[in-house]
Nucleic acid binder design. Structure first.
Lengths: 250, 250
DNA sequence: GACACGCATTGACCTGGATCAATCCGTGCG
DNA sequence: CGCACGGATTGATCCAGGTCAATGCGTGTC
């Protein structure tokens, strides 16, 4: 019920788009395709959109497709019997959704904002992997990057304080957003609940730590708490706890 | 300094081993090789061993090789400036070490027990990946499995209680060990410090929870706390918190 | 404008796990 | 044997973050 936006319009607009003008062409799983491989991908792709809040796949359910996020932001979550939830991944444009070689989704995939996916039939994509080495190589590279990111997050979950966790997430979002503008400004794609789920905290603790960082002058807020401003990213990254010298992985 | 065991003897014994009789032949990165690919791997492999406690690679250092764990158990850890440490992976026989496409190790790799590695020059292995599709495909599959495992662990780190964490780890170790013997019995490859590092806890909390599980009759200990016995794995897995019905991922 | 709804914030209190500090116990060594 | 050493255990205390509960605030609706 979460809002019937004009999705068909979006869908239609993207459906006519060819790969050459695709915004994620050079970063997604197709990044290193030659024109032959790109042609094969183009012939099997289709676009599909979800509104913010909609479920893209349920934990354990059949997932007959794979694809790349073209636009928007999706979350991966795992949960325990009794309802405790942990976000285990945050997908941004160019990230890959689904798992070749597995018929079911190991975690729940949810649209955090409106999301558009460039999707492929799973079986056909698996066939493609066998004889399109550039796609397979790029997918391996992306998977290894995801693995590194997951392990970085394990360090955060296991050892960082609440303040460090929140600072880490805000720094992450700010770096992904416009790196040129000054002061740094970013609209949070995640509400407090999703942030808490990502950080292994409660909503209240996230809220308290955001307020504390603001009170201490490390960040400023706008748009009723949904936009973060930061004059001094280095200061924020010191709060985040990892490398004081601003060296981030990647 | 940590014990000069007769490593050369072990090394010598394995160096003469051919892939056909290798204990990890059907599970490692070479699992699906045809005889041509296996021949190429065999010509570039070499064996190398480390004693328990030795460092295999330092976080951020150059790592000129990749390889498969043949024997023993190694840990991957990430750490913060101020010394806080989090284990981000536990490598068992057949697991892959190193990252094709990256020259430096993103985390510290340490031998938890005596470890033997079947190693390949990183550059030569990368070349092999390009035209040995079975190796590349198997590596992708293994990387995706690692990613799933890392994400499962994120759920543990972010949302499980200390008791659940300890029960999860013990159940994991017991299932990997002899699944036939009854009662289930396993020698822990990890000391309390490594367990604490893996679970995002302190040594003291791990010790307390192990004691509590023993007091509650869920497990028994032997060999001065280094061996775990379990008569009722289902009971232990209920303590672990995920699926009451014993369904584990994989 | 008045109201309701869905967040986010703030406050008061409680608790699980960290911290600090003794033991304990198996092993190796003089 | 006695002793030292490196883990592991156990106890006492503290506090960061969870829990419960009230309040604030922007948005959409009538």
């Amino acid at each position: 019920m979460a809002g019937l936006r004009p999705l068909t319009a979006v869908h239609g607009a993207l459906a006519t788009q060819d790969c050459a003008s695709c915004p994620i062409r050079h970063r997604a799983v197709c990044a290193r395709c030659d024109s032959a491989e790109l042609g094969r991908l183009e012939s099997m792709k289709s676009y599909r959109s979800w509104a913010a809040g909609e479920t893209i796949a349920l934990e354990g359910d059949a997932l007959p497709f794979v694809g790349s996020i073209v636009r928007g932001c999706a979350t991966l979550t795992r949960s325990l019997e009794d309802g405790r939830v942990q976000m285990v991944g945050l997908l941004m444009p160019s990230d890959f959704v689904g798992r070749p070689g597995r018929a079911t989704a190991p975690y729940e995939v949810t649209a955090a904002t409106d999301v558009t996916l460039c999707q492929f039939d799973r079986q056909r994509f698996e066939n493609l992997l066998i004889d399109a080495p550039q796609v397979a190589a790029r997918l391996l590279e992306m998977s290894l990057d995801e693995l590194d990111a997951a392990r970085d997050w394990m360090l955060l979950l296991g050892r960082k304080s609440a303040r460090e966790k929140v600072a880490t997430l805000l720094a992450l979002v700010l770096r992904r957003a416009a790196a040129d503008a000054r002061p740094l400004r970013a609209d949070l794609p995640l509400g407090r609940e999703a942030m808490a789920s990502y950080l292994g905290l409660t909503i209240e603790t996230v809220s308290r730590q955001v307020s504390a960082l603001k009170r201490d002058g490390v960040i400023r807020l706008d748009n009723g708490g949904r936009t973060v401003l930061c004059d001094d990213l280095a200061a924020l990254m010191i709060e985040a706890g990892d490398d004081a010298d601003g060296g981030m992985p990647g």
